[in-house]
Design a protein around this nucleic acid. Sequence first.
DNA 1: GCGCTTCTGTGCGTTAGCGTACATACTTAG
DNA 2: CTAAGTATGTACGCTAACGCACAGAAGCGC
Lengths: 239, 239
Amino acid sequence: MAQQHDPRQNRLLGALPRDEYQRLMPSLERVELKLGESLAESGKVMRHVYFPTDSIVSLLCVMEDGDSTEIAVVGAEGIVGISLFMGGETTPSRAIVQSAGGAYRLKGELLKDEFDHASTLQHLLLRYTQALITQMAQTAVCNRHHSLDQQLCRWLLLSLDRLPTDELVMTQELIANMLGVRREGVTESAGKLQKAGLISYHRGHISILDRPGLEARVCECYGVVKKEYDRLLSYHRPG
Amino acid sequence: MAQQHDPRQNRLLGALPRDEYQRLMPSLERVELKLGESLAESGKVMRHVYFPTDSIVSLLCVMEDGDSTEIAVVGAEGIVGISLFMGGETTPSRAIVQSAGGAYRLKGELLKDEFDHASTLQHLLLRYTQALITQMAQTAVCNRHHSLDQQLCRWLLLSLDRLPTDELVMTQELIANMLGVRREGVTESAGKLQKAGLISYHRGHISILDRPGLEARVCECYGVVKKEYDRLLSYHRPG
DNA sequence: GCGCTTCTGTGCGTTAGCGTACATACTTAG
DNA sequence: CTAAGTATGTACGCTAACGCACAGAAGCGC
């Protein structure tokens, strides 16, 4: 099943012209990311960048007291490890696997070489980074202005957009960590959504039953982010 | 007083090697930014990028109902208009002058040309962008976890770091818009700081009396951002 | 001076989310 | 089958921030 494990399932890799892709391909190493696995720690230099194919990675800000908040989420449309090509080498945030699945990794130096070559990859990565910035900015706004109910809808939809299925493997406790709120608050908000027939969940498994229903409840933040991703990452797949 | 109007007061321009600076210099146009002036609107293409020297510019996310939140602040250490070299051309955010003063602007195409030339400027701008990302991420965390008192301290200190003086020209109403809170809340928090002798304010003018006192009250977010700016933007000023 | 606007202060009642404590499942290991 | 561990449900008081309403106070135009 070579097709099931194609690096080009990652949209950044998939958008590369043939020659650039072939230059990188031999160095791409498939890895299986486990739920909760850490790909980057605050202040530590990453050795690889990761291109998720069917996994999701959360970027988290961790505070001194251990509380954390998700500032962005990365799936098959993106890359984990932007600091390696942005030049800073490290970031103060942490990258945790939110949904287990496959990814391809690449040694940091190799990516940097290709990036500095003013390649197509450079343009893709910069546009992607700009989309990521939009996501972070909108997260900041959402944290200030919107109810937990709305934020939960946003989180579910953003995650859903990055998954092939309609089911998330995720406890309310973990969602609470992502959103930076109490677990009980998530229980309450998720309960509302379940009563409304939009989702159903059961011990760490959440099924989305009515996506349009979620979209009707979500705050504008979701739309702003989605629109910007669509705009910035609408690649023309090379022949 | 040529020295008072030197583009190199902006730290990005100041960190350029001689040849790159001289290539840009003739195209740099000094402008005076007025309080409240808009340099960028959501979704609109900017014609110039701005390098503040002694002004401060806020990047704001504006929502459908008109409420806004500051997601980052740019002073002499930075540039306004990253989307022009990141490749997206536009952003969903708005850039508003928070403190009147000087800046140098440059046509977008000229900056893009220099950037694509894999120059020192490119490296500087990418590192700066990474610092900006850190600021946005920390803003998101702060919005979720910290009290208005702490956020006000953070905001004052971040602004102060970008100004030559210890006085801000800023009403409580405007600060509330920046922080995305009620004006009354700012009145209350600022009142506490004034009672504690840390600041004094009077009809739109805020003087910082005790900076260490503010630093003792601020949340960790300020330190995280400052440290990351220092790390990423510690240029070796060329000879 | 006078009137208008802007800026700041203050006092409500209301609400969202927190902290805590505990109850009730369901799941897995033994 | 039982026990331990994990996931979810619920309740109660507390606090920060909200929305609203209005009162002073300082500056500005005339």
